[in-house]
C-alpha cells in the first residue's frame, strides 16, 4: 500500500472513528449512569439529521441548521426520557431492549409519515466543500477534517465536563451510587434527564455531521447504532475513555478492512475483532470501575 493511500485511509478511519465516538459516548454515558440499554439512540441520530436537513432548507445556512437542531434534539430526547424511558431504569435489560426497540419502530414510521420515504441530501456550504493539501500528493476534504476536529473537541470538552465541573461530579457520583447521591439531596431524576439530553445532543450532532456525507434517510441510525454498541462493548460499557479508544480502533479497523479484505469479509471484520476482545477480556478493554 503506497503512503498516500495509507494516510488517506488513516484519516478516513479516524473520521469514522470520531463519528462512532460521538454516538458511543452518549450510549455509554446513559448506560453507565442510568443502567439503560438505549436502542433508540440511533433514532435520535436520525432525528438530528432530519432536523438539520429541514432547517438547512428553511434557513439556507448549514451552520444555523446545526446550531438550531442541537437544542431540538436535546428537547426531543428529554421528552422521550420523561414520557417513557424514565420508568425503565430499574427494569432488566430485556425490557429496556424491547421498549426502545418499540421507539425505533415509532420514530422510523414517524419520519416516513412526516418527511416521506425518499432520502434527503444535505449540501455543504462553499467554505467546507473543497479539498486541502496536507502534504504534496495528499489532498483531503476539509469537511472530514472538520468532523475530526469537532469530535476531538467534543471529547476534550466531555473530559473537562466529567472531571472538572460540578455536573460532572454529580454524573460520576450518580454512576457509582445513585441512592447515596439521592440521599445527599441531589435531584437524581432531573440529573438523569440532563444526562439523557446530553446523550441526545451527541447523537444528534453525529447525525447532523453525517448528513452531508451519507444520505439522510429512514433507518439511517440503525447501522451506526449497532457499530456504536460494538464500540462500547469493546471499550468497556460505561467508560467514556474506553469508548474513545475503541471508537478509533473500530473506525480504523473497519476502514482498512474495506481496503484490504474482500467485500463480505470486510463488514465481518469488526465483529470478529469484538468477539476476539470479549474472549480475551469479557468486560471490555477499559472496564468502568463500579463500587
Amino acid at each position: 500500500m503506497d503512503p498516500i493511500l495509507f494516510f488517506t485511509q488513516a484519516l478516513n478511519g479516524l473520521q469514522f472513528g470520531v463519528m462512532l465516538f460521538l454516538m458511543a459516548t452518549g450510549l455509554t454515558l446513559i448506560f453507565g449512569v442510568m443502567n439503560l440499554i438505549n436502542l433508540a439512540h440511533g433514532s435520535l441520530y436520525m432525528m438530528g439529521a432530519y432536523f438539520a436537513a429541514t432547517l438547512q432548507q428553511k434557513t439556507g445556512s448549514f451552520i444555523w441548521a446545526i446550531i438550531l437542531s442541537i437544542p431540538l434534539t436535546v428537547l426531543l430526547g428529554m421528552i422521550v426520557e420523561m414520557l417513557a424511558l424514565r420508568r425503565l431504569y430499574n427494569r432488566d435489560h430485556l425490557d429496556q431492549v424491547l421498549a426502545t426497540y418499540g421507539l425505533i419502530l415509532f420514530f422510523n414510521e414517524l419520519v416516513r409519515m412526516v418527511w416521506g420515504p425518499q432520502s434527503y441530501f444535505m449540501a455543504l456550504p462553499q467554505f467546507l466543500s473543497h479539498h486541502v493539501q496536507i502534504f504534496s500528493g495528499l489532498t483531503y476534504p476539509v469537511y472530514r477534517l472538520v468532523i475530526i476536529g469537532v469530535g476531538l473537541g467534543v471529547g476534550a470538552g466531555l473530559y473537562g465536563l466529567i472531571h472538572h465541573t460540578r455536573l460532572g461530579m454529580l454524573i460520576r457520583a450518580g454512576a457509582s451510587n445513585r441512592e447515596m447521591v439521592n440521599a445527599l439531596g441531589v435531584n437524581i431524576r432531573f440529573l438523569y434527564t440532563v444526562v439523557f439530553g446530553l446523550g441526545a445532543a451527541l447523537a444528534g450532532l453525529a447525525g447532523m455531521l453525517a448528513g452531508p456525507i451519507l444520505s439522510v434517510e429512514v433507518g439511517m441510525g440503525e447501522p451506526i447504532l449497532i457499530l456504536a454498541f460494538v464500540v462500547i462493548v469493546i471499550g468497556g460499557i460505561g467508560s467514556i475513555q474506553g469508548a474513545f479508544f475503541a471508537a478509533v480502533l473500530v473506525g480504523v479497523a473497519d476502514t482498512f478492512g474495506r481496503v484490504l479484505l474482500p467485500p463480505g469479509m470486510a463488514s465481518m471484520g469488526i465483529y470478529v475483532l469484538m468477539a476476539a476482545v470479549l474472549c480475551w477480556r469479557p468486560e471490555g478493554l477499559f472496564p468502568a470501575q463500579r463500587t
Partner: peptide, 16 residues
C-alpha cells in the same frame, strides 16, 4: 401502511 407507528408505542405499553 403506517401501522408501525401504532405497534411501536404498543410495545412500550406492554413492557411498562
Amino acid at each position: 401502511q403506517h401501522w408501525m407507528i401504532v405497534l411501536g408505542p404498543l410495545l412500550i405499553l406492554v413492557v411498562l
